[in-house]
Amino acid sequence: MKKRIIDYQKTDTMKCNNTQINALLTAYLDNALTPEESKMVEAHLNDCSDCLDELQEIRTLHLQIEHTPLIDPPTDAERRFRQMLEKQHKPQKQSITITVDFSWKKIAAAIIIFLAGAATVLLFQSKTDSDTSSIAHLENQVSQMRQVLMTALIKNDSPSDRLKAVQYAEQISGPSPEVTNILLETLNHDPSVNVRLAAANALHQFAVHQEVRTKLAQSLQQQSDPMLQIVLIKMLVQFHERSMVPTLQDFSHDEKTHEMVKKEAEEALTVLL
């Protein structure tokens, strides 16, 4: 083996001038040339002994490399890989998947269709018997409809739906004690502060009534959210509602009261007393 190598070395001067073809020799041996290129190389090899020799040398080297065994990785390589894989199993995002079945949508759709139906009936009624009656009557019908929707929505589980109900209440012209009561109920008991606050704002227009103001002052006593406390205080101060004075005094003495609420209460007290 060694001898042959030396032989090639000695005989090989490698003086071929056709560098372009020469550069393709390795690829030729690797069958990586296009048919045209291969033909060119073959034609050249017919009359260039230099390149033929070089080709032989390349082949020898390739064989040498082929017979060179690869180095074995450390024996624990596979164990380490398995450990890595195992780790990937665990922290790599454990998850749970739940397939949701949406048959409730049908129920929701049914409710909407029912409400829409009820609305058209109401509107239709108002149209037929309002040939002679005034637009005020029609408005009244719309208000009635809003009230129906409002009383239905306010019981809804979704806070956005309840916000919508409060919005309807605001738009009802000539609100009934029933609407006012629902809003007060919402103000005191709704689980969402956002909805309670919307109810407080909606009640603003009814605060001209003494009984509503009394209820608002009572409500202030039980509200824990600073935002609601401030809104109610501001509202009641406008109407000079003195029944809230004890509550305001409590606020100003209680250490747990929000700083801004305390300030608001103290200012209100100076006005009210």
Binding site: N22, A23, L24, L25, T26, A27, L33, I58, L61
Partner: peptide
Amino acid sequence: IKVKMHRAL
């Protein structure tokens, strides 16, 4: 690559 490979080898 054909040329580079040849030169490298």
